[in-house]
Amino acid sequence: MARQKLPPTQTLTMKIDDVDVTAKPGQTIKDVARDHDIIIPGLCYLDGLSIWGGCRLCLVEVEGMNKLLASCSTEVAEGMVVHTDSPKLRAYRKVVIEMLFAERNHVCSVCVSNGGCELQDMAVELGVDHVHLPYMDPDVNLDSSNDRFRLDHNRCIMCTRCVRVCGEIEGAFTKGIGGRGIDVRIINDLNMPWGESQTCTSCGKCVHVCPTGALVEKGTAAAEMDKRRAFLPYLTIMREAQR
C-alpha cells in the first residue's frame, strides 16, 4: 500500500486498554479493538447482521462517560480512552452470563450443542464455574415440527441472531420476537409450529448462526451438533451487496 498521508479526517487516534491505536471514523469500538487483537466478549453481535446491543456482554468503560457503553454499537471518536477488561467489567459480565444460564433451562450435558456452544465458551472465558443466582426453571417448550430443524426455547438466550439473519439475509422474516420482558420468545410467523410456517424456506441459516443449542438440526444426539459456520464471513458480503 502506498504510504500516502491520509487527510486528517480519515483516521483518528485513541487508546484501548492502554494501547494507542488508530481507527477510521464510523468504526465501532468493537471493530477497532478486534483490528488490534483485543477481543471483546459478546453473544448477540454477528458480523453482517444489524446491531442489536442486547446481550450487554460487550460493555466497555469509556473515560469521561458515566455510563458503560456497548462496544458493538458505539462509534469511536478522536482521543477516546477505552477500557475493555477492568475487574468491574469482568464482574458484571460474569453476572450477565449467569443471568442467561439462570433464565432458561440450559442443561449442557444433554444438549446436542454441548461443546459447540458459544454460551459455554463464554462461561469458561469469563470464569463462570457456577451460577449463584437462583435458577428460574421456566416451563418453556420445544418445537420439533419442522422436518429438519428443532427450536428449543429452553436453550435460547434471545440474542435474536436467528431473527436478524432470517429477515436481513434470507429475507423470509419467518422468525420474530413475541411477547415481552421475561416472557419474550422467538416465534415463527404468527407463533405457529415451525413446521406449519408458510414463509420459512428451510434455509437453515438461523440454525447455524444460533450460538447455543436453541436451534439445531434434527437427528443429532447430545454434543453432536456441529454448526456450519463457514458461511458466516459471507454474511457481510451479502449485506454490502444489498446496499
Binding site: 442489536w52 446491543g53 442486547g54 446481550c55 450487554r56 453476572v95 450477565v96 443471568m99 442467561l100 439462570a102 433464565e103 443466582l133 437462583p134 428460574m136 438466550i157 434471545m158 420476537i177 411477547g179 415481552r180 420482558g181 421475561i182 416472557d183 419474550v184
Partner: peptide, 21 residues
C-alpha cells in the same frame, strides 16, 4: 418494571424478574 421490561437486554429482562423474586 418486570412487567414493563421489553425483554431486549439481559440485565433488565432477567435482573428485574430475579429481583422481584
Amino acid at each position: 418494571c418486570k412487567d414493563e421490561s421489553c425483554g431486549k437486554c439481559t440485565p433488565c429482562r432477567v435482573g428485574t424478574a430475579q429481583m422481584l423474586d
